[in-house]
Each structure stands twice: as C-alpha cells, then as structure tokens.
Design a protein around this nucleic acid. Structure first.
Lengths: 208, 208
DNA sequence: GACGTCAGCCATACACTGTATGGCTGCTGC
DNA sequence: GCAGCAGCCATACAGTGTATGGCTGACGTC
C-alpha cells in the first residue's frame, strides 16, 4: 500500500490500484487456492467495499487473468547458450519453477483456455527455441502448440497431485523408502523423462 | 403437492436412481457445460426437489465423479493385435474419441485431480501396453503416469480450444485457406504428432 | 394387527457467490 | 464557483450448495 502514498490523506488519491488488487488476490490464491478467492474476501483484505473493486477490474474473470499476467511477467527464461535441447530443458525448468512457486494459480490457469497468450514469454520463448532447433517455420506454431499442451498436462498433473498418485500406484517403488515427498526426487525424474520425451518428439519432426 | 404425479404407482418404488441422476446430469453437462450444472437445475429436469438428490448422492463433487465414471465405463479400448506402437495409437484414438463425445465433461475431468483411478480402463489399458512394450515392471507406473499426464494435456488443450488457437497463431499457415475447422485435419495431424512424440519417449526409455 | 424403523421425498433456511444500480464525496478543468 | 467525474460505498437481486427437520408410506418383527 505504500504506493500511492500512504497518508491516504483525504481520499482523492487512489488507494486502490489494479496492481495492488492483483497482488492481494495472488496472495489469497497462493494461500487457499483459486476456489477460495471471492470478490468479497479480496475486498475485505484490502479494507474496501466489494463493489469498489469493479472500478478497477471489470469482473472476476478479468481479475484472474490479471493475476495470471502478474506472475507470467515474472517468467524471464534465459535462452542463450547450449544446444537447443539444453535450451529447451532450461526453459521447461524455468516454467516448472514458476508453477511450483504458485501452484494453485498455475493449476487453475493451465486448465483454462486462455492461459498462453501469443505475446508472453511462454510462447515466444518456446517458438524461438523450436526455430533455432531447425523446425520449419511453417510448422513452428503447430509443433509448439502440441508441445505446450503436452507440457501443460505434465505441470497440471504434477500440481494437482495426479502425477504423484499414479506414479506411486504400483508397490514396485524402486526399493527406496517411502519418503517420496521431500525434495521430490521422483517428481524430478518424471520431469526429466517428460522433457526427454518432448525432445524426442521434436527430433522426430526435424527435416532430414 | 399434487403431485408427484401420476400414479407412478404407490411410492415405494424409487423414481430416482443414482444412474438416472447421473445420466440426466450428463445430458446437462453435454448441453451447456459443467458450469451450467447445478443441483437445482438437475432436480428441475428430473421433476424433483433439489434436496431429494442428496438421498442418492452425497454432494456435487460426488455427482460429477459419478457422471465421469458413467462415461469412463463406455471406454472399452481394444488392445490386441499389432505392435505396441499400434496398440498405443489405437488406445489414444479411443480415448480421444471419448473426449470428443463429451468434451465439456472431459475437459473438466482432465483438469481435476482424480480423473484417472487405478481400476478403470484408462490406467489398466495403458499400463498393459507399456508392459507389453517391454518397459520394466518397476517403471511402468512412473512412465505411465507421465504419459497419461502429457496426453491429458493434449486432450485438454484440444477440448478447450487452446491447441487450435496456438497452432493457428503464426500467419505461416501452409498456404491453404483458413478453413481449418471442418473435419479438423489440422487437429488430427496434431494428434498423430502428439502420439508419435509419446511413442518416441517410451522407446527412449526401453532397456537395451 | 400394532409396532418402531426407515427410505424416499419435500419445504424452509442459511451462508455465500458475482454483480447491477444508484447515491455520496471530493478532486479536477474551466 | 461550477460542471463533471473518478473513486468509493450501500443496497439489492438472483443464483449457488447444502443443513435441518418434517411428512408419508412400506417393511420386519412381535
């Protein structure tokens, strides 16, 4: 809140800002999940009347989009050195790290239609890597769309627990003790397997 | 009162059954999406008081699980002839056909944690194919979990339109006119690409 | 037959949701 | 000083899931 000047002084100055609303909403989502976010609770946290929010955000869907964009802006993948395989691996790792940072939000966003937007770094980064890998420009979008879908599925399943539940299904667990949780090495192995799979898919699609 | 209408014989016989509730709910979901399903609307369709539903279904979450299981029971993959690659391809096709038959329900289910349950044919079929492909038994669950997650992501993105939107993003569309919709050949190509990617991932994981 | 028990159904009610409508206040440009 | 307006708030509406409790009629047991 400090922003916009504390003092709060009279009233004219805007105590409520779009960004402030989004960050407060993000905090709520991170704490209790998207389902627990309501306009009323958000307003209460901000010490404000619920209807006041509507002067900065048209509706709840837009609110969630704004929150999503807020965290999407944190995503600054570094795509430079190494082979395209390494680049893709790092890219996926960065994305996954973001998903781990805000699991509730990401799980919700991945499941909704408009998560990935043409301009944001998810898409530009991915298509960049694909082009540098040698995927024909006419196919970059199609290939990228499939890869993004597949990978989203992985993150979604990891985020909501499906992945862990299924993987642990057979009692075949490789001898190791049951402490699968901490540090999550099983999850990491699943992750690298997923990435390798995607890489193999791209390689199969390269001309030549 | 009045009602209850016509005779319907005395009363003791159950006019409301679990299965009847599920099928009616499925009809609503198919028509207007999961978001449009409410206990009240469902009760209205069934000509019954909303609270009566609770004598057959504990709550709305269970209702949706029941609906999901209803369509999951329709899934009878035929895994017999051919190489494991062909089997997997057919398996994926069957799954996808189901998703196309009830897109609203499937999109919702894929996004929720408990879509795939250990006993149902999704899982048993998939793990069966993996075993027959030669994946070590100790790894079948882990590999299957990843593949299921990835493929779910594909179906989810296809179902909610993300896939098509992203794939059509670059104006690079192969010269052809914009009629990407009918018969959806682009979607089919994406699908086979996705399946090939998954197959490549498995192959990379085979011992040898 | 009389009995308690109970399954099935319904009516009412509560807490909660998103948001439409309209009114107040005080800053801004003229 | 004044009109306009941005920001905020109070009230209200339609809709949600479901807890609670009451009714009715069939059933197993004496």
């Amino acid at each position: 809140m400090a922003t916009t000047g504390q003092a709060s002084s009279g009233r004219g100055d805007a105590r409520l800002t779009e960004k402030g609303i989004y960050t407060a909403a993000l905090r709520l989502v991170d704490a209790d999940g998207v389902g627990a976010l309501s306009m009323r609770k958000l307003a209460a946290v901000l010490g404000v009347n619920p209807m006041s929010l509507y002067h900065h955000v048209p509706n709840k869907a837009a609110l969630l989009r704004g929150v999503k964009n807020l965290v999407a802006a944190q995503f600054q993948p570094q795509v430079d050195g190494g082979t395209w395989q390494e680049q893709l691996h790092r890219f996926a790792e960065d994305f996954r790290a973001l998903a781990h940072r805000h699991p509730n939000l990401i799980v919700h966003s991945l499941a909704s239609p408009d998560f990935i937007e043409p301009e944001d770094p998810f898409w530009t980064g991915l298509t960049g890597i694909l082009t540098s890998a040698g995927v024909p420009t006419t196919e970059v979008a199609a290939v990228g769309a499939v890869l993004a879908s597949l990978f989203s599925g992985f993150l979604l399943a990891e985020g909501n627990g499906t992945l862990g539940r299924l993987a642990a299904l057979q009692p075949t667990t490789t001898a190791g003790p049951a402490t699968a949780s901490s540090a999550d090495p099983a999850g990491d192995r699943s992750f690298t397997f997923a990435v390798q799979t995607l890489i193999a898919g791209i390689e199969a699609h390269l001309p030549r």
